[in-house]
């Protein structure tokens, strides 16, 4: 009992953080007190004040506004990556699992090859070959991630395919498309949601990390990883420049991880 409530408490708590962050990301232009890219060297590196609630960075830009806009870029691009990845994975995973046969065989061999390498290594190699930039980074992550998820989804489809009502629907003459959209997908959607939620955290860490290295989002766009990179020279004198964006990444990723985990607990129990 106690465990259940604890689980739900964490679920509600992390869910609330996610909703709040999504709200901030969507309404950034209305929430941000300043233009995030407006430089004003006269007010550089200031502490918190009425005008700049969290102070300013080395170019006199308002940190709070940059954090708010950063939510837009960081969370927005992560959600985009995960959404595209999931669509590709669902299509290919379902076809491979449902059709079986030669398609499935080739797909699995392909997976074996790609998955033999650690994801981060592949993303780094892809970005290396294609060049730095947000678009290339997003593309690289999608190209690498979909394989893993397609394979997981294929597994789900396989185990669902064997169940009675699918066989029954087949015998009643339902078309394949109908069986997939009416019977298979609704059954595996909860698991896919869990996967996607857990993945957003990972992707966000990747995007922030690559942007930190200067291989992702390019300055002056406000993004948490890139902000951390900017804060580097002022680490000793102005640690708050580094604390805020890192804290944001940490909190958001943690919220997604917790939410996904607790969601899984709930779906699993059913």
């Amino acid at each position: 009992m106690i465990k259940e409530i604890m689980n739900n408490k964490l679920l509600v708590f992390s869910g609330a953080i996610i909703v709040l962050m999504a709200f901030v990301a969507v309404f950034a232009p209305y929430l941000a007190p300043h233009d995030p890219n407006l430089t004003n060297l006269a007010v550089r590196l200031q502490g918190p004040s009425k005008d700049f609630l969290l102070g300013t960075d080395h170019q006199g830009r308002d940190i709070l506004s940059r954090l708010i806009y950063g939510a837009r870029v960081s969370i927005g691009s992560s959600v985009l990556v995960v959404a595209v990845t999931m669509v590709i994975s669902i299509v290919i995973g379902t076809i491979s699992g449902y059709k079986g046969g030669r398609i499935d065989y080739f797909f699995m061999r392909f997976c074996d090859i790609i998955m033999a390498f650690p994801g981060l290594v592949l993303i780094l190699a892809f970005v290396g070959i294609m060049g730095p930039g947000l678009f290339n980074l997003i593309l690289s992550i999608i190209l690498i991630q979909w394989v893993t998820y397609a394979r997981i989804i294929r597994g789900m489809v396989l185990s669902y395919k064997e169940q009675n009502f699918v066989t029954a629907a087949k015998m009643l003459g339902s078309s394949n498309v109908k069986i997939i959209t009416r019977h298979l997908l609704p059954g595996i959607i909860p698991q896919i949601i869990v996967l996607a939620t857990l993945d957003i955290g990972t992707v966000l860490l990747h995007i922030a990390g690559f942007s930190f290295l200067g291989l992702g989002i390019q300055p002056p766009t406000a993004e948490w990883g890139a902000m951390l990179n900017d804060s580097r020279q002022f680490l000793r004198s102005h640690p708050s420049l580094m604390i805020y964006p890192g804290m944001m990444i940490f909190i958001v990723v943690m919220a997604f991880n917790l939410f996904g985990d607790k969601l899984r607990d709930i779906f699993d129990r059913k």
Binding site: L205, G225, P245
Partner: peptide, 14 residues
């Protein structure tokens, strides 16, 4: 699992 390693690095340095 949620800690960005570059942030952790900065915190450790600081």
């Amino acid at each position: 699992a949620s800690m960005p390693s570059f942030w952790l690095g900065f915190l450790l340095i600081y």
